[in-house]
Design a protein around this nucleic acid. Structure first.
Length: 277
DNA sequence: GGAAATGTTTACCG
DNA sequence: CCGGTAAACATTTC
């Protein structure tokens, strides 16, 4: 479930279900699930209490009653799931955590089909774990500086979609919400960022905030069982998408068919009438 | 068999 | 050193 709204959906579930729990045992089952930079093997997390679950952009971390944090990135297909006898044992289990709070016990599982996701025990620098230090604040961060972000975006020569996806300018937006934001702001994805007016870029950032807010309220976007929350449930924002994945379907604004182009190694969807270069 | 899938990092080039 | 671009990473499904 991996763009900001999906990661936030997971985070909210984890706050509800694992915050305050103490790790009894932590195990990893795949040679690449633990980042090579990890300060320690995963098993060393045993004994720590989870004091909170935080997020910056698409990076997620558990704060512990220790100096280090347990950091996670879901990559393309990572999931956290709370163990339940109601559901079949998930495939591609990469790590598991036995948790306890008083008499209550829970299992937290990390699964990842494509293994682009990872876990890591990391030092925290000024409130942010090391792997996320280079990631810019996302729009839901209390210290998000919109005017600065807009200025930085406008200073780039690259295509606006590339700039919107750059996690070091503003974090959180991935391919789905980039296409949706550009559609809402009526901007062609290949427009050079520095050719856009201040007004247009402002509209784009506002659209990104708006669409991600709506997606969080819907529990994220799920196309299939690969993107689900900690209870195994799908979000329903997919039904609200205007552009992403809507090739040949009518633009909800003007009726013209949405087109898909290959761009920067991935697909971009837009309305050729509403979004012109 | 080829293409595509919601991400990040790295290398290379100018 | 910086910005821009392409490729690599791995697995599964259509």
């Amino acid at each position: 479930m991996p763009e900001l709204p999906e990661v936030e959906t997971v985070r909210l579930g984890l706050v509800q279900l694992v915050q305050g729990y103490t790790v009894q045992r932590a195990q990893d089952f795949h040679p690449r699930v633990l980042k090579s930079s990890s300060l320690s093997p995963l098993s060393v997390v045993a004994g720590a209490r989870i004091t909170g679950v935080q997020r910056r952009g698409k990076f997620l971390w558990f704060t512990l009653n220790r100096a280090e944090a347990l950091v996670a990135h879901l990559g393309m297909s990572g999931q956290f799931l709370i163990g339940s006898s109601d559901r079949p044992t998930p495939k591609h289990v990469r790590a598991s955590f036995l948790l306890q709070r008083g008499l209550r016990k829970r299992e937290l599982i990390f699964t990842d089909q494509r293994t682009f996701g990872w876990l890591s025990v990391e030092p925290v620098v000024a409130g942010v774990p090391l792997p996320a230090v280079h990631i810019a604040r996302d729009p839901f961060d209390a210290l998000f500086d919109k005017p600065t972000v807009i200025r930085q975006m406008r200073s780039r020569k690259a295509a606006i979609k590339t700039v919107l996806l750059n996690q070091e300018i503003m974090s959180g937006v991935g391919n789905i919400y980039a296409d949706e934001s550009l559609w809402r702001a009526r901007i062609h994805p290949e427009t050079a960022a520095y050719d856009l007016s201040m007004r247009k870029i402002t509209a784009l950032v506002d659209a990104a905030i708006e669409v991600m807010n709506e997606a969080i309220a819907a529990g994220g976007t799920s196309f299939d069982a690969l993107y689900i929350n900690v209870n195994g449930e799908s979000g329903f924002f997919a039904q609200s998408l205007a552009a992403y994945g809507q090739e040949n379907k009518p633009c909800p604004r003007c009726g013209r068919g949405i087109v898909r182009i290959k761009f920067g190694n991935r697909s971009s969807h837009f309305c050729p009438r509403c979004q012109v270069k």
